[in-house]
Design a protein around this nucleic acid. Structure first.
Lengths: 208, 208
DNA sequence: GGGGTCATGTAATAGGTTACATGATTCT
DNA sequence: AGAATCATGTAACCTATTACATGACCCC
């Protein structure tokens, strides 16, 4: 009962920990190598990577008994490093964590949603212009993801390891279509938006 | 030059600050009232609300000169409270912040994306089962959002203030379709997934 | 007139990010 | 042989979350 769970919700919350458990399930490694793998393997596009956080997470995982110090090694005259290995508890945790993440949608708070909630603080014409510019940037990012996928496939990476990128692609498309439609609706006089918007702007700027 | 920007990137980063600036652009308020508004107005579905964080953010905004202590009031014999008002700098910050958020897509890290990146750590049959269950949960959440929208419209809230919820709806639909398709692809023998998956599982569990 | 919930906020703690440090290789 | 970059990690700081505190109001 003295906990393999952090006070906050479920166990360790930083998803970097999931990556660490997964890599260690294949072979023992030291933290720096974990970070390199994360970058080279492209998983840093899916999980926020930050060297300092990695060491924090490794310490947390070790404290929880999910990974264990295996040996202290050294390559050439490079600094010494501590190699960690997955424990049985760690393997169980990896599986349990993944199960939860795959099964249960999490309520999250993307920045764009927060911005949309307060969009009426800006005048409609300006919002339309900003959104139009967003469309371009979205298209560019989408193209980058596309390139990552195609490049990886060409380099022989199996599609199984590119599912996240395809998911991102789908999301980009949806957002693009939504924003396009939103721009239209802002201009559409058959919605009541324009008048509501004007009133709201008056409430903000008018009285003073 | 001594900063209206936090060390970390751009200004204040917690989106709760955006909500505070927006509310204060309509009228001065004290922190507790800000929190109540956030909940009642439903914006807590778009921006993560936590009472402790609210006070932190208010302090940050005050330190940045974006809001200013206006008076200290009291309702009945309830505890005293400090009323804050938006400053001119605060109004500018609100607009600038919103512009950035609307124009520039942010790279974010949803939990599901992280999970997808490591999905091959579980056996395919289990993944399919988990994803099937996810479909149900997604449908339920989608229905809840739908109800929020319909209920609000029926209560007279203009559509302009429900854009975030519609965006969420679109995202739910995309994710649902993607997961459905993903389940099919896992079962589809014409992809190379099954064999790749088996090899990967062997690499994880086999040698030991 | 006592028990719950609301109003208002503070303090302690844990988590995450930035900045820095040091020596080894590699490149030109 | 000097500059740049890689390898490896530590430490300080900032942010955010949880937990707690205190007194009103309200209800029966």
């Amino acid at each position: 009962m003295a906990g393999n769970r952090t006070p906050t919700g479920r166990k360790i919350s930083n998803l970097l920990g999931l990556a660490v458990l997964s890599y260690l399930s294949q072979q023992p490694m030291h933290p720096y190598a974990l970070g390199r793998t994360l970058r080279e393997h492209g998983d840093a596009r899916s999980i926020k990577y930050n060297p300092g956080s990695l060491y924090t997470v490794v310490r947390q995982l070790a404290a929880g008994g999910f990974i264990a110090e295996q040996e202290t090694g050294r390559d050439g005259l490079r600094p010494e490093h501590t190699v960690y290995a997955l424990t049985e508890a760690g393997r169980a945790e990896l599986h349990d964590w993944l199960r939860t993440l795959l099964e249960q949608p999490q309520h999250e708070y993307p920045a764009f949603v927060g911005a949309l909630a307060f969009v009426s603080a800006l005048p409609p014409a300006e919002v339309s212009a900003l959104l139009a510019r967003r469309l371009h940037l979205l298209a560019r990012q989408r193209a980058e993801v596309r390139e990552v996928i195609d490049g990886s496939l060409a380099a022989g990476v199996p599609g199984l390891f590119l599912i996240e990128e395809e998911y991102r692609l789908a999301q980009f498309d949806t957002e693009h279509a939504f924003v396009e439609r939103l721009i239209e609706r802002i201009a559409d006089p058959s919605t009541d938006w324009i008048s509501v918007w004007r009133d709201h702007q008056a409430a903000i700027n008018g009285e003073k």
